[in-house]
């Protein structure tokens, strides 16, 4: 077709957008990668099946869930063993040395008391294109056949559909879902139809359901700005009495103050209303 000198047109017509032809060339190589510490890599080499035994895995997604898990579950004896990195955005961290609770990191910790207990704190947005690979990476080095998996996630209350108007809901609220293999029931109301959970939490639960693992999701709906404030963090409290978390926690007398500190750190980073 008519075009100026030197222009190369990859399409048959400017007027018609044939989506099917665009499709093939769009995909990026953007799979996340899991980096273990040297000690774990060594461990993996010496395991009979090349995998780490995992009996308890807690996956916390989002700042409120990460804050809750950090303060009330992980505050015991845990050490950093690895991280999952995506490298999609310029600001994405690629090292294991970020220490602040507001850093956009995804780190994995292992308990010093029980080597089969792991916690994954995911404080970054994992793109939907990466969820599948992210979950496969996480479970690829775990022998999780007998594991209990707990997933904590936060969403804005506008995503919650019910007959009750949002202004009448006692926010933040928590809802649960579980896989068939999980024998108990979540210690909160089950997520009602027609609500759906998407993203990383959904991919973890789908993996667990399809592979016959015991998993429970605790989904918090909140109207807090940046989805983190003290009531939202506290909304996850029922998790402390659930299987398997109740077997691995120790009381933290400074929990209240640490929650306020984390929320304050997030507020400082929020430049929306300077």
């Amino acid at each position: 077709m008519a075009t100026f000198y030197g222009e190369v047109l990859p399409v048959i017509s400017r007027a018609v957008d044939d989506e099917e032809e665009d499709d093939e060339s769009v995909s990026l190589e953007c799979d996340p990668f899991l980096h273990w510490s040297g000690r774990i890599r060594n461990n993996l080499l010496h395991q009979p099946n090349g995998k780490l035994t995992c009996n308890i895995l807690v996956v916390a997604i989002g700042p409120a869930a990460v804050g809750f898990t950090d303060i009330l579950i992980k505050h015991g004896d845990y050490h950093l063993v690895g991280g999952i990195f995506s490298g999609l955005r310029d600001g994405d961290q690629q090292s294991l040395s970020q220490k602040l609770p507001t850093d956009k990191t995804c780190y994995i910790y292992r308990s010093n008391e029980d080597a089969s207990t792991f916690i994954c704190l995911c404080n970054m947005d994992v793109a939907v294109e990466q969820c599948h690979a992210w979950v496969n990476q996480l479970f690829s080095d775990f022998d999780a056949e007998d594991a209990y998996v707990v997933v904590l996630n936060t969403l804005h209350s506008s995503k919650f559909t019910s007959e009750v108007p949002t202004s009448d809901l006692p926010l933040p609220i928590i809802r649960g879902l579980k896989t068939n293999k999980f024998a108990g029931t979540p210690l909160c109301p089950v997520l009602e139809q027609p609500n759906l959970v998407t993203g990383l939490a959904a991919q973890v639960m789908t993996y667990c359901q399809a592979n016959g693992l015991r998993a429970a999701l605790y989904q918090c709906y909140t109207n807090a700005r940046r989805l983190v404030d003290v009531p939202t963090i506290k909304a996850f409290m029922p998790v402390l009495e659930s299987t398997p978390v109740r077997d691995i926690i120790r009381p933290n007398p400074e929990a209240e103050q640490q929650m306020r500190d984390i929320v304050a750190l997030h507020e400082v980073q929020d430049t929306l209303y300077l």
Partner: peptide, 14 residues
């Protein structure tokens, strides 16, 4: 279940 990298993840109750 069908699991494929092309499928957007989503879960819900029955």
């Amino acid at each position: 279940y069908i699991m494929h990298e092309a499928i957007t993840p989503a879960i819900g109750n029955n």
